[in-house]
Design a protein around this nucleic acid. Structure first.
Length: 482
RNA sequence: GGCACCGUCGCCAAGUGGUAAGGCAAGGGUCUGCAAAACCCUUAUUCCCCGGUUCGAAUCCGGGCGGUGCCUCCA
């Protein structure tokens, strides 16, 4: 096994060596749930899902933890606007998030801790940081982390402290000793969720929750910590500072998370898609008109460390491409006719796995898949000819395609069901009445039997004008929406 | 301003030293009553520009130009 991952901490691709042989602990920074998930969230969790799936396929026992940040300034602000209780509102958006991630084919994590359920661990961690001299409580109910006590502070983000000072912010009411310091615990303000602590009622600052939840659910050190690249600074930088200061005498960042992986953004008009810019599509809105698996396919078309420009064209392409993949699978199944798939995986399937070994190069895998599917179609086209297609070869293709698909989280549905689902979305999108389509097809079939090709072509043109494309085959006429 | 990243065919995109995958689009063909789908063939002597290193560079180095991200809201 030689799996390579791009490690932000090392600044280069490194070989993945599990800390405990055969096992991987992976923590994905989860969403702050104050709104529905958008396409950018879908991208990053699809990426981590492929990581988990592939590592498991390689025989590693992966423990996958993904948190929900459900206590946070933005959540409180949004809940107050809506007159809702913050933690309850966050719980609703967390449910919504899970629905959306299911729809784009993501496996549920093994543990999904929430800040609101992790307060004792957070308080204990802060106490330890205070005891060890890395944190201080100025007496106003806040607790801050003293950044300058941690020499390796900016290693992950490759900056120097003096550059950071320019951007450092001190909010009114804060009592930081140094502008770089950040809050571990915030004194309660009226109307905010609050918990008891040695420093009075309050709530965790942003960053400390992830340290507490990783330590509780994975322990330290663990193998891989992931997140969007916008989290490198300050979130992950601070997480390392907190966790390492609490844990390690040597103060080495590796004593917390061994490796850090960061995904690039989904962009709209060459700008990062984000809630704050307001240029986002929610996954929910998209799924009304489009297939979740198609969205997943789109997201895997670019390597995770490169940006993706999200466009309607790209989504339409992905939808057509997904239909092609399932049509091929369906044809392959028909040709294989229940034949058994024996023997080793085909070379292309091994090549696909090797591409995933190389920092999860999903775009390369899709290229490999394209060749295999073209070849499968060519073989299937020999149906009824001499020599006929090799049934066993087609059975192997079906098996390998589904196995590689399983690592990507695609192609796991019954082809006929998937194609019908895709058509239903398209029908809804274009306001087509399937019954009317079927009626015209019946009329056209009658015309064709009567050799009235003028009539049959007129009917076909009318359907085409509605976006319905007909395919005449030996078993009758089928249709799809272009 | 500081620190990163990116610039490959009309569009999307893989490729980090060994002589440019793949998809879409386009053109030609096979099949078909005609189509559609599928398949076959064609389409970048060249990788933003200029230098350098090397037997050899899209890949490494230096300098431009263009774009993006982060610099305490962010996946």
């Amino acid at each position: 096994m030689a799996i390579q991952i791009h490690d932000t901490l090392a600044g280069e691709k490194v070989e993945l060596h599990p800390i405990v042989p055969g096992k991987i602990g992976l923590y994905a920074c989860g969403p702050t749930v104050y709104d529905h998930a958008h396409v950018g969230h879908a991208r990053c969790y699809v990426v981590w899902d492929v990581v988990v799936r592939h590592l498991r396929a390689r025989g590693l026992e992966v423990r996958y933890v993904r948190n929900f940040t459900d206590v946070d300034d933005k959540i409180i602000a949004r809940a107050n606007e809506r007159g809702e209780e913050p933690v309850a509102m966050a719980a609703r958006f967390a449910d919504s998030f899970l629905e959306d991630m299911d729809a784009v084919g993501c496996l549920r994590p093994d543990a999904a801790p929430r800040v609101s359920g992790s307060i004792p661990g957070i308080v204990a961690l802060i106490e330890r940081l205070v005891t060890r001299g890395f944190a201080y409580a100025p007496g106003n109910g806040d607790v801050y982390y003293a950044v300058r006590k941690f020499p390796a502070y900016a290693r992950l983000s490759r900056r120097n402290l003096d550059d950071l000072i320019a951007g450092a912010r001190v909010d009114p009411g804060e009592s930081k000793r140094d502008p770089l310091d950040f809050a571990l615990w915030k004194a309660a303000k009226p109307g905010e969720p609050a918990w008891d602590s040695p420093w009075g009622k309050g709530r965790p600052g942003w960053h400390i929750e992830c340290s507490a939840m990783t330590l509780e659910h994975l322990g330290a050190p663990f193998d891989i910590h992931t997140g969007g690249k916008d989290l490198v600074f300050p979130h992950h930088t601070n997480e390392i500072a907190q966790s390492v200061a609490a844990l390690s005498e040597g103060l080495e960042p590796e004593s917390f998370a061994r490796h850090w992986m960061h995904n690039n953004f989904v962009e709209i008009d060459h700008q990062k898609m984000s809630k704050s810019l307001g240029n986002f599509f929610t996954v929910k809105d998209l799924l009304v008109r489009h297939d979740g698996e198609a969205l997943r396919l789109l997201l895997m078309g670019t390597h995770y460390r490169n940006p993706i420009s999200f466009t309607d064209t790209l989504l339409a392409d992905a939808e057509r491409r997904l239909a092609y993949l399932y049509e091929t699978l369906e044809k392959g199944d028909q040709v294989a006719a229940g034949g058994a798939a024996a023997g080793e995986p085909a070379p292309w399937a091994e090549a696909a796995r090797a591409a995933l070994d190389d920092d999860f190069n999903t775009a390369a895998v899709l290229g490999i898949l394209a060749d295999a599917f073209t070849a499968a179609n060519a073989t299937a086209d020999r149906k009824g000819k001499t020599p006929p297609p090799d049934r066993e070869e087609m059975a192997r293709f079906g098996r390998d395609a589904r196995a590689v698909g399983a690592e990507l989280g695609i192609l796991q549905r019954e082809p006929a069901a998937a194609l019908l689902a895709l058509r239903e979305k398209a029908v809804a999108r274009r306001g087509i009445d399937p019954a009317a389509v079927e009626a015209r097809i019946a009329e056209r079939t009658a015309a064709r039997r009567a050799k009235d090709f003028t009539r049959s072509d007129t009917l076909r043109d009318e359907l085409l004008a509605m976006g319905v494309v007909l395919q005449d085959g030996p078993a009758g006429t089928t249709w799809k929406v272009e």
